[in-house]
Simulated scan of single mutants.
Amino acid sequence: MDEVTLLAQAVPDVPPPSAETVARARARLATRQAPARRPRTRRHWGWTAGAAVATMAVVTSVVMLVSNLAGVSEPAPRPAASPSSPAFEQAPRVYKGLGRLAGARMSQSATKVGLRFRPTSKKIAIVVFCQRPGSIFFSSEAGSSAGGVCGPDGALSRLADKAYEPGWLGREHDITFWVFPPDAPVARGRASCPPGGACGKKYDLSSPKTADRLAAELGKRPGAWSVAAYDVP
């Protein structure tokens, strides 16, 4: 229903206008309404285009975000730090501020191993580490020997004391070490053997030959051990 029809209904006593008059009035009305309708169409189109652009930007951002997330892999887990080996399995690199010159190890006791090194100072230390506390060690080089009892914390060989003797420093040494279990039949001290060297069924560890015989009798026994020479870094 247009404006002309509403006007005719509002004023019933006035005769209706002619068809020509109605046509001209509708034409003028259409001319006046045309500029007012165009902005509405433009505003509607502008809103639609702006919404489309905004929607496209959001979609593009989401796609890029998903692509980035898919392309970035999670960081690989770091391997757990392996605990350091016990000293009786691997002599430590540093001992009481001294650096390791050379080292050797054995997985069983009643065995022997050679240690070769060249000392650099009178602070040289030769340390034996034994898995079983109270294990018995013996060391020998060129007619000199020393023995004692060792454990996980290490024990010093008295052969290192020779660093104070003339000629011991400045040359290469090759010392042989034996380690026996705590219950090995070893004579403890000079009082264990009567004069004449008779020790009964016990062994007097005073020479490499005696140490080899004891090792052969016992066979390899449980008890890892290691030995190392330490000196000034």
Rank of each mutant, 00 (worst) to 15 (best):
G223R: 00
K162P: 02
K209H: 04
D13N: 09
R190W: 13
A102F: 01
P12W: 05
L169H: 04
A104Q: 15
K220C: 02
A80T: 09
D183C: 03
E20R: 14
A142P: 08
K96A: 14
L101V: 02
G134T: 03
A229F: 00
G170R: 04
R188H: 11
G97M: 04
A87N: 10
G143Q: 02
L6S: 09
G147T: 01
D231I: 01
R116Y: 05
C150M: 04
T48E: 12
R24H: 09
A110E: 05
Q33I: 04
C130A: 10
T176S: 15
P75S: 06
E217K: 15
A27P: 07
W225V: 00
R132C: 03
P133K: 01
P195F: 14
D183F: 03
A10T: 10
V227I: 03
R40H: 12
A81W: 02
S226D: 00
R43P: 07
R221Q: 08
A25Q: 13
R105N: 11
H44T: 15
T21W: 14
P233E: 09
E3A: 12
S82R: 15
V186Y: 01
T21Q: 14
S73K: 15
A70E: 09
P15M: 10
V63R: 12
R132I: 08
K209Q: 14
V94W: 10
P77M: 05
E217C: 00
A102N: 05
L205W: 02
V63I: 15
N68A: 15
E74L: 13
I124V: 09
R190M: 13
R105T: 15
L169G: 12
F88I: 07
G189P: 08
M106F: 08
N68T: 11
Y164G: 12
G147K: 07
Q33P: 04
R37S: 11
Y203F: 07
W178A: 04
A216E: 08
R40T: 10
P12R: 06
R24P: 01
A160H: 08
K220H: 06
Q9D: 15
Q33A: 12
G148V: 02
Q33Y: 12
R213N: 05
V58P: 07
S144W: 14
P222M: 00
G147L: 06
M106D: 11
F177A: 07
G154S: 03
R158Y: 13
R42H: 13
L65F: 14
V127S: 00
M64C: 12
H44L: 11
S18P: 14
T176N: 08
F137C: 02
G97A: 05
A125C: 08
L7Y: 12
D174P: 03
C150T: 01
D204A: 09
Y164T: 11
A10W: 06
P166S: 08
T111I: 05
R105L: 05
A70D: 09
A211C: 00
L29W: 10
P92T: 05
V72D: 10
A104P: 01
